[in-house]
Amino acid sequence: MTTEAPSASHCFDFESDFIGNWRCIPLCVRRKLDLCGIKLKLNHWLALNQDERQTLVDWLDTQDALEQLGEHLLSRTETMADGQAKTLPIASGEPWQNPQQIPEVLIEAAQLRGIPLQTEQWGALNELERFALCKLARPGHDHHNLEAAFSEVLG
């Protein structure tokens, strides 16, 4: 468990194939997008230059900072070819935000892989770690990083 890692800008080892070049949106940014209610397409992300992408990775996740992030992204994407980023409801009461209850989809994903997952482990994870596991385990998602995520986060 990496509970001491700062959630705002932490990138996981299983994301290493795109860290630095930022060809995909890392989970730390995806969490911030959920927390500020912004749907940023991959094409929006790729239209940003490397420094801008790094700035989003490094962006703080305090309430004020998240509000500023949402405003920044709406402004920054306004003239992009894919149109302005969309607003979504701000994440509230999401399964990854509840350290007391392991989401059923995650229990099933862990059982399928023979990975024991206890409520105490789940509660000891930081919000980004819970977010990562939930996002990677959700139905319809390409689960190729899920085993590596389980290993890294629970290892």
Rank of each mutant, 00 (worst) to 15 (best):
A47H: 05
W22A: 01
Q118F: 11
R31S: 05
D61N: 08
L40H: 02
Q118E: 14
L42Y: 08
Q97A: 06
G140Y: 00
A81N: 12
T77N: 01
G123A: 08
H10A: 15
F18I: 09
R76V: 02
S9E: 12
A85T: 07
W96L: 11
D64T: 10
A149R: 07
E147I: 05
L88T: 15
A5Q: 15
Q68P: 02
C36E: 06
G123H: 06
L56H: 01
L112R: 12
L88N: 15
T55K: 12
I115F: 05
Q97T: 03
V29L: 09
E71R: 08
A47C: 01
R23S: 15
I38C: 08
G155E: 07
L69M: 15
N145E: 13
R23E: 13
A81P: 05
F12E: 07
A110P: 04
L146F: 09
L35R: 09
A148K: 09
S7Y: 06
K32N: 09
A132C: 08
L117N: 05
D51H: 13
G83R: 03
A109R: 04
P89G: 13
Q54W: 01
A8G: 15
A132F: 04
N49P: 08
A132H: 03
E94H: 06
D17C: 07
K135P: 00
C11M: 15
R30H: 10
L125D: 05
L88F: 11
L88E: 15
T55H: 11
L42D: 10
K86Y: 06
W45M: 04
Q100K: 13
